[in-house]
Design a protein around this nucleic acid. Structure first.
Lengths: 171, 171
DNA sequence: CCTTAACTTCACAAATTTGTGAAAGAAGCG
DNA sequence: CGCTTCTTTCACAAATTTGTGAAGTTAAGG
């Protein structure tokens, strides 16, 4: 063997596999409880708790004890949600999956597409029930709430970026 | 029959059952897509688009064509999530389920319990991986993000209450 | 080009979730 | 108190979801 099996074995960054696994499973469990699918949740937690913030398909399969097919499905989902990005390490056919902290903060707050569809459905509702009926007014107010939320969240993320830079630097 | 079957049949507030149902199903579908269970989503949408903002178990069962058991399960879930409240109309064993707009705006943004558990898991992770490791630092920053979000959302809801009062009055 | 390593797709079995009918449990009203 | 009406609980069948092995596809490197 010319290279160590699995992840980085450098003494300075040696990982306590047990501790990592414990975190991965408990954080993933919380994500699942919040509605995320199991495999994406586990893969995401694994990436989040890796030192480099990136892992290959094989590494993920080994750590989580899941098949390549499961890894594939999970990362496809995560990539679609913009919570993870794929990288090709040059001169290899291995793919690397990376969690960019910034990126996933945006992804988790940016339910923009979801909210837009809610707003669309609500507008349809207001139209067809009539803005002058009690129900129509309730829907209209709900719509206003989401519109409000949408702009507020954008501003909140602006403030976060400032806050983050102050506390953690640009990185 | 001394009272009309189903909901209010007063001409002024006559509901186009078809239109209501269309909205209910399409809005519910969006909620489902966002991770909500089907029955709670449908029940919630039905309440939201009712003129009075409240319906009995029987009315819900009729409109949605579901069994009493399904209604029961759905409203239990919605009540737990504080998206709906139960009322007993005095002098009847009928229960009424009501959506208070205010209440459900809070419920939807107030993922407090969820976020708290995420934060707890992240703190555990930082502790066990060590705040001086790259992974530990990533988890710590993620934790900071959620703490930030938590206070910001509380303020956002304060602003919403003001905004709402200006645009829709106290009601 | 051919080989081979890596990822993806697909069909399917297992596990989980969902909604129902039936029975049991409350609570008003006589 | 017991009847009646409404709601909840429970066991189960149906439907859906999940993760796998195996076959298929892609692309690097000879």
């Amino acid at each position: 063997m010319t290279e160590p099996t699995g992840a980085d074995r450098d003494a300075a960054t040696a990982r306590d596999a047990e501790a990592v696994s414990k975190f991965v499973e408990s954080f993933a469990a919380q994500l699942v409880e919040a509605g995320m699918q199991r495999m994406p949740a586990r893969v995401f937690a694994a990436l989040l708790s890796s030192d480099s913030g990136a892992m290959t398909s094989v590494e993920l399969g080994e750590q989580l004890r899941i098949s390549p097919a499961a890894v594939s499905g999970a990362v496809r989902y995560l990539a679609q949600q913009h919570m993870v990005s794929r990288e090709r390490e040059p001169g290899s056919r291995r793919e690397r999956y990376r969690v960019h902290s910034n990126q996933w903060y945006e992804a988790i707050t940016n339910r923009e597409a979801v909210v837009k569809r809610w707003e669309y459905a609500l507008r349809e509702g207001v139209d067809s029930l009539g803005g002058d009926t009690p129900a129509g007014r309730r829907l209209a107010e709900t719509l206003a709430f989401f519109e409000f939320i949408e702009t507020e969240i954008a501003r909140m993320m602006d403030r976060w970026r400032v806050h983050r830079e102050q506390h953690f630097g640009k990185d």
